[in-house]
Amino acid sequence: MVFPTDGNVLVGLDRADDAGVYKVSDELALIQTVDFFTPIVDDPYWFGQIAAANALSDVYAMGGIPKTAMNLVAFPVKDMDLSVLRAVIQGGIDKLAEAETVLIGGHSIEDKELKYGLSVTGFVHPARVLTKQNLQPGDGLVLTKPLGTGIVNTAIKAGMASADLTESVTRLMAALNRIAAETMARFDVHACTDVTGFGLLGHLAEMVSGSGRSVRVFAERIPVIEDALTFAAMGLIPAGAYKNREFRAGMIEVGDGMARERQDMLFDPQTSGGLLICMPGAQAEDLVAALKDAGLGDAAKVGEIVDGPAEKIRVA
């Protein structure tokens, strides 16, 4: 397929990145992204917040600042009370306010199933766009949120998660990547993405593909939701995690003796996951410390970029 383009497209469809980037001037480029999904939590207000945090995340992952947003709504108006829709949209608005982003429009249709999301536009300096490319040998990888939301959501569906856990995971998914993005902006970052449906290793594989580099992942240092390990051992794993594992099997080598549950975390599809930041190794621990100071206590250095064998991910 050939996509229409022009000289101002900095990041387009030819590269599977988190958002499109279009240069307006030498000082300004627009970041555009859209994301929507069916409810992942029961509470409509929290669903609205999570959907907004998830849509905004792509702008942060590109190194930008979100500015405007539009709602996308599909609603079963005959089967569901309008108060549900109001709560969803209020959740979105509150999350946008937290991100200092304005809602300037939207569109809704009638549908059998509730769906909500946003199209978000952000600003970035054309020279400071962060993509999934530009991995350098010796770089460190920093992850800003713990993994395991897909598995915990499966346990919630199964009625096996406690109320406390449900609430803490809901808050985690609704948490903006704003602080992470603002903190990393003070550092010399080489590449960035956010961890969502493909899981940590799926998104890392996208970064490694075409880079000519390899990655070493330190499984033991990866932040995880502890309860997710227990649920994984009981088989409460979303089908997406298995698809993610299968899809990237050829690129990934897992060291002997690693607990199966810990491996599951690496492929678990995340909703509104954290940023995965690639930067000079010498600065990575400083970023982790700065993120922790800013309140992101789970942030950790989880891997490093090495030269060859090309485009493999080694997990040990």
Binding site: A232, A233, M234, G235, L236, I237, A239, A241, Y242, K243, R260
Partner: peptide
């Protein structure tokens, strides 16, 4: 996927 989940359980 379901097979592996049930096995784990």
């Amino acid at each position: 996927a379901s097979q592996e989940n049930v096995q784990r359980f």
